[in-house]
């Protein structure tokens, strides 16, 4: 019956599952771009740096609203922050478990919240630095820079995690964030 089998419909081999809606994807890559812009390109003292920061803040804000009213896999309920589940998941991975998570896996979920908080922290401290009251205050600038270092460290960890999970589960996560669908190899458990 090889003639009928359509690789996209997935009756044989891998099956494609739509997980990331366009809004999630656009926000993800826009935020990545904003972080890249402000981390590497814009001048820290410039107006542009401020605006890029506000856009990043706005993107996170939109994503949080979407996590309340968006579709299933984009909702908070699909990736509740839970240390216990993250620990459990890490153990399972070390045992060689290959379960595929349609939304974020429990460790990835923690990273999502961590990245959002870091961006919000950067936005808030960055805004405060522009106000008359906190202009030129030393600890605030140090906090802004500290948060940036933390963000870059987190992004590196995030990318490493994506690479590891892609290798472990055989689901190309970068492709999923570009086209929105996870291609799940046949015979893998899905959660």
């Amino acid at each position: 019956m090889s003639v009928i089998a359509d690789p996209v419909s997935g009756r044989e081999g891998a099956r494609d599952v739509a997980v990331w809606d366009p809004l999630v994807r656009l926000i993800h890559w826009s935020l990545a771009l904003m972080i890249l812009l402000n981390g590497a390109i814009t001048d820290d003292e410039s107006k542009l740096h401020e605006w890029v920061g506000y856009v990043a803040l706005g993107l996170v804000g939109l994503r949080i609203v979407w996590a309340f009213i968006g579709p299933r896999h984009a909702r908070f309920s699909a990736f509740r922050p839970s240390i216990a589940r993250a620990v459990q998941y890490t153990r399972a991975v070390m045992r060689g478990d290959r379960t595929v998570h349609l939304s974020h896996n429990p460790l990835g979920a923690l990273m999502v919240y961590n990245l959002w908080l870091a961006v919000i922290g950067l936005g808030v401290t960055g805004y405060m630095m522009t106000t008359l009251r906190f202009f030129g205050v030393g600890w605030l600038e140090e906090m802004h820079e500290g948060l940036f270092v933390w963000l870059i460290f987190s992004v590196a960890l995030h990318v490493a995690g994506v690479a590891f999970d892609t290798w472990r589960s055989g689901v190309n996560l970068v492709r999923a964030m570009v086209v929105g669908r996870k291609r799940i190899p046949q015979g893998t458990d899905v959660e």
Binding site: P22, L23, S30, L59, L62
Partner: peptide
């Protein structure tokens, strides 16, 4: 859906402004 998502982001940023 993609176009809608793009408009949502633009309009959201305008709202923020």
């Amino acid at each position: 859906a993609t176009v809608l998502a793009g408009i949502i982001i633009l309009q959201g940023l305008c709202a923020l402004f």
